[in-house]
Each structure stands twice: as structure tokens, then as C-alpha cells.
Design a protein around this nucleic acid. Structure first.
Lengths: 343, 343
DNA sequence: AATTATTTTTTACGCGCGTAAAGTATTTTG
DNA sequence: CAAAATACTTTACGCGCGTAAAAAATAATT
């Protein structure tokens, strides 16, 4: 173990008995060199613990092996889960993921795109803020950097979009709720940040019409990403007014539902589908905590594995295609209903 | 706006009318050049939208302006919150934070340290996994890279540790609970991943002895980071056995408590401090969701702002001191009790 | 105005690696 | 076994910037 520290690729090449250009080739793609050569290089890496200087590696490369991953809000465990899958797959494929969170701020999102541009990534997976996003900044970014949007779509931007089919969420919950009890009212924010919210409202209205039922939308105040608190305040206001139009509430998303359930508990409204219950509550997303609400939340679940998996695969295809697709693809995965105790 | 794209610092220097070495100096530290020079450079940046190639910038620098931030588990919104504060402060101070999550895996943690080493960061903020961490890997890393540990301490590693005072958490909850009702039993995992858990158990035992009360520790099975599910299963087992030693439970952390509360609800045990309640539950951390459990969770809160703020400040001081402190500092912030409805 | 201190310019070199070209060695194919 | 194909070596240059040293310009001080 008394080997002196290797300072650069030149030195490493000489101690490994391989020429520098071949070593360089190896680090760019280990499978591009002959198996025997590869074995010798890897033995030397093992022995000398050498890694190339990533800065020198990347400065002359038009595009790097980096992949940017941007999410709107990291304190939402939903994104924490997604990021875990994405990171793993990127690393397995030999890329280096760089993770960024906009933390709900459009300014931060712009800054992140700026940073990403100078990272010269091979590709970017971007879950935009939504309504608040600086559309022109994102558009300009997508022109320069191969980008796949996920989770929340912005029409026409990025080479591809991968997300969940909001209609599938809502059709399943509405169908189930109206089949097993009173038809649901819809509970949402008045000015939702996320475009999925609007799609869900429209899907709700559409489904109710299709079923010949009277729709009822409750829109509550509040801005920002503290959905639980917004849901709780909005629900308290409605419950205290005794203004519930039906005994069945369908929340736009689980985080609002978590706040609503807390308000129900506080005001003594028993939630569930038993005869002694005051109301039923269902929702969408299958948030990691929806299993632990009281009662546990009946919800429509994202196909987490497919959304994250297909986002990554699409990005890999995009990178292999040189960063552009002929036409913009949109892939939507269906939700599946998870029946728990709240409805 | 018809300016041609600037290709490198040479070109940028010439169009801005400043020499390249001075421009280089500016990008390293804008305050290091004369105000008039700075103004001219910034005007040119504005006009030509030039940024230096970060890879070329960093390849010759001994240490970069990067700061590594490592957390053990990003799907825990606790860390999402902390990261937000840390990132903001780093950017304000002119650093580029790079965020990494070990996602509960020691192997990932090792890989992250490896990646970080080649990023040549000015400093690293590391919240280790805890018991599962590869101690020798962390120790070796801390020798090479200026590192401040936070959240969970590993004795002797890193130049400094910033976290919460576990004794302060437990003393407040135990004191409050035993003063207002039956003394608490302690509910925890048998093999906690996090060293804070052990400190909390010892603090519980110590406090109980000091108050002349009989301690009772319930240790439940389970490994990994799915604390809610572990808490729920453990609680179901105990509740179904009717094996509660007292009517007051103190959970080691909020995520276990969230699982326990869900088990209580499921089994019809009413939680709270009213006369009609079966048991009281309190906990530690002030997890972002503890406000929305049913009933809302009485808990001891981290001083989030101080822990994240002081971690960053300590790292900045460390960087300014050339990466080493004379002696290893440990800074612990006190918790404060948040009284809600569960106890 | 002269002296001193500070900042900028000029010149020049090097960092660690990518990569192109031409030649040599090795493996594969028929 | 020879021819063809593939992989590797040698040589050489360039990328974009850091940075050192000496000279020149500018600003601050007396």
C-alpha cells in the first residue's frame, strides 16, 4: 500500500501500463476498450485509487455525463420518493445526477436553470413549479438543454412529458364514491399552483356530468405550498359554517386532505364509511403519509414506479437521440384506487 | 441585442475593456476589484450574458466555491426543510450548494463521499446516517475535506457538530407529562439507526430516576427508515396485547408517534388529555406533519432555524479558518415544548 | 507635485484532460 | 495463414482558465 499518490492520468496510465488516450477512452465508456485492457485498468484503479479530475474531464466536452434533476418542493415526501428512484437509475446508467429544489419559488427555479446551463448536462429532468413558473425562462432553457418534463406539464415545453393521467385519478374516485354513497363535492384551492389541479377539477366536472350528477366545487383561499394548513383552514371555515353540500368530499390532492381530516377531527366530525360516520373523504396522489391519517385515506395512487422509471428512460433515449425528438411525446400513467378507511 | 455569443473569458475581457486576469479575479471575488472596474464588468455581463466555464475555473483551483450538503433521508420532510434554509444561505454567501441524500443506505453514503471528494468542495455539511454509517469512510473523508456534522453526531468526526440537545427534548416532555398525569412509558425502536435515539432513551431513564419514578421502555422491532410503519406495527402489537404499562406514552420521535397514533385510531383507543381519553401520547422533533395528526401531536420542537443557521455559519467560519479548527466544537440547541392535543 | 500604495495590464506558462492522426500491435475472419 | 478489422500507442495540439511576475497606470497620501 506504499504506492505514492497518482497526480494525473498521465501518471496513472504509466503505472497501469496502458497509454493515456486509451485510459481516457476507458473513463468515458468502460465497455469501449478490450476486456483485457479494461481488467488491467480496473486493477490499477483498485490499487492506486485514482479518479480523473472531473473538472478537467468536462471542460472540453460539449456535453457531460451529468443529469440535472429539478423538483418544485423537496419538503414534500412525494418528491423525495421520486428523486430516490431517479437518482439510482441515473447512477446505474453511469450518469451523475445533480439534485435541485425550487422550494416553491419561481426565482429559485430560474436560478437553478441558470446553474444547470453552466453544468452542461447531458439532459435534465424537470418538474416545474407550474402556474408560477417563468414560462419564457423554461422555454429558453429547453431550447438549449435536452429536457424531459415530469409531474406537471407545461404545454409544448421540453422534448417530452411524463406524468400521471389526472382524468384516470378522478374518474376512479368519483365513480367509486358515487356508486357507494352520496356523490362527492370537490375540495380544492381557488388558485392552485399546479396545473394538475385544474385538470382534476375539469375531470371532476366532466365525470359528474357524465354520471348525470350535480357537481359541487368548494374552492378555498390560500397561496403557497403549505397545502396541509391551507386545507385545514379552509375545511374549518366550511365545517364551522355547516356549509357541507354533501356528506362526501373529494379532495384535489392528499395534502389538502390531510389538513381537512385534521379539521374534521378537531371539530368532531367522524370520517369514514360506517353508519356512525358524518362524512366520507377521498383524495388523490397516495402521498407517503396518507396511510397514517386518521382514518387512513382512501385515495387514487400515482404509478410512482412507472412515472419515475419512464421519465428516466425517456431522458436516456433523448440523450441517445442527440437531445431532440421528432415530436413531443406525452406519456400519462393511470392511477389505481387505494381503498382505505376514510371513504 | 445583436451581440455575438462570447466564447471565453479572453473574448469577454476584450469586449468589456478589462484585462483577462482582472476579469478572472472578479469572478473569484467581485469585491476584490475596484468599484469602477466592477461596474464595467457587470455591465458587460449584463449585456453579453457571459458566465465563465465552471469546469475550467475549478480544475486548477485547490478548493472550489462548492459546498456539499448530505442528508440521510430526503423523503423525510424534516430534512427537506433544513435543506431549504441551508441552500439559501450558501447561495447568499456566494457558494454553490450540491445536495445529496443517502436515502437510508450506507453504501450510498459512501458513494456520495466519494463523489464529493472529486468535487473538491470548500466544505461539507454532513448529516450522517448514524449507526449504519461506515465510520472509517466518514473519518477518512473528514480528514480530507473540511466537514461540519449536523443533526446526528459521530463522536470525534468532523471539525464541528451542530444539533439539538436530546436531553433538553426529553426533560421537557417527561417533566410535563409526569406533572400533569401518569408518568410516561418510552416507546422506541429496538435498534435505532440514529444515535439521537440512544441519547433520548438515556435521558428518559435519567429523568425518571431523578423524579423518583419507575421507568418503562417499550422497544419495538423493525429496521430501516419507514418509521411510521414500524411505529404502527409495534403499537398494534402492544395495543392488541393490552400490554400498555401506563396511559401515557412518550415516543422517541414524531414519525414513530405518527404510526402509533394511526394504530390507536384503528383500534379505537382515544388519544388526548380529556377525561374520556384512553391514553396520552407525546413525542419529539416537531415534524412538519405533527400539527396534522389526529389528535395534533404534543411534541418537543427542534430549534430548526438555529440548527440550520448555525451549521452554515460554522461551516463558513471553518472555510475561512482554512478548513481546520483548533478544537472540535459541539453546539447543541435546546428544544421547546409544543403543547397540542395528544397530551 | 511628489511619493507611496493600490490596482490593472502584459506576458507567459501550466493544469489535466480531450482528441485527432498516423503508425503499430493484436485479434478476428475467411 | 494471410487479409481485414479492431484495438492500442505515439505524438501532438488545444481547451478555458488560474496565476505568477514585472511593468504600467491609477488613486491616495503627504
Amino acid at each position: 500500500m506504499g504506492e505514492r499518490k497518482i497526480r494525473n492520468m498521465e501518471e496513472f496510465a504509466s503505472v497501469s501500463g496502458i497509454s493515456r488516450p486509451t485510459v481516457s477512452k476507458y473513463f468515458h465508456d468502460p465497455t469501449s476498450v478490450r476486456a483485457t485492457t479494461r481488467a488491467r485498468i480496473e486493477a490499477a484503479i483498485e490499487q492506486y485509487d485514482y479518479r480523473p479530475n472531473i473538472y478537467a474531464m468536462n471542460q472540453n466536452r460539449e456535453l457531460t455525463k451529468n443529469i440535472g434533476v429539478v423538483v418544485p418542493y423537496l419538503a414534500d415526501p412525494f418528491f423525495g420518493e421520486i428523486v430516490r428512484v431517479i437518482e439510482r437509475r441515473c447512477i446505474e446508467a453511469g450518469f451523475s445526477p445533480s439534485l435541485f429544489s425550487s422550494h416553491g419559488s419561481a426565482e429559485q427555479e430560474r436560478d437553478i436553470l441558470d446553474t444547470l446551463r453552466s453544468l452542461k448536462p447531458a439532459g435534465v429532468l424537470l418538474a416545474p413549479l407550474g402556474r408560477l413558473s417563468d414560462k419564457s425562462a423554461i422555454e429558453a432553457f429547453c431550447r438549449d438543454v435536452p429536457t424531459v418534463l415530469f409531474d406537471s406539464n407545461i404545454e409544448g415545453m421540453g422534448e417530452s412529458f411524463v406524468g400521471s393521467d389526472n382524468y384516470s385519478f378522478v374518474s376512479q374516485t368519483v365513480e367509486y364514491l358515487s356508486r357507494t354513497g352520496e356523490p362527492p363535492s370537490f375540495f380544492e384551492m381557488k388558485n392552485p399552483a399546479n396545473p394538475n389541479a385544474n385538470k382534476r377539477r375539469r375531470a371532476y366536472l366532466d365525470m359528474m356530468e357524465r354520471l348525470g350528477l350535480e357537481p359541487n366545487v368548494m374552492q378555498i383561499d390560500g397561496t403557497g405550498w403549505a397545502f396541509e394548513e391551507i386545507g385545514r383552514q379552509g375545511a374549518l371555515e366550511i365545517l364551522n359554517r355547516g356549509a357541507l353540500p354533501t356528506d362526501t368530499i373529494l379532495c384535489s390532492n392528499d395534502r389538502l386532505a390531510i389538513g381537512l381530516l385534521s379539521a374534521c377531527y378537531e371539530t368532531g366530525h367522524k370520517v369514514g364509511r360506517g353508519p356512525d360516520c358524518d362524512l366520507r373523504v377521498a383524495s388523490h396522489d397516495d402521498h407517503p403519509f396518507s396511510r397514517y391519517t386518521c382514518p387512513s385515506l382512501t385515495t387514487a395512487a400515482h404509478d410512482y414506479a412507472n412515472v419515475s422509471g419512464h421519465s428516466v428512460e425517456t431522458l436516456f433515449r433523448l440523450i441517445e437521440s442527440g437531445g431532440r425528438f421528432e415530436t413531443r411525446e406525452e406519456t400519462l400513467f393511470s392511477a389505481h384506487l387505494i381503498m382505505r378507511d376514510s371513504a
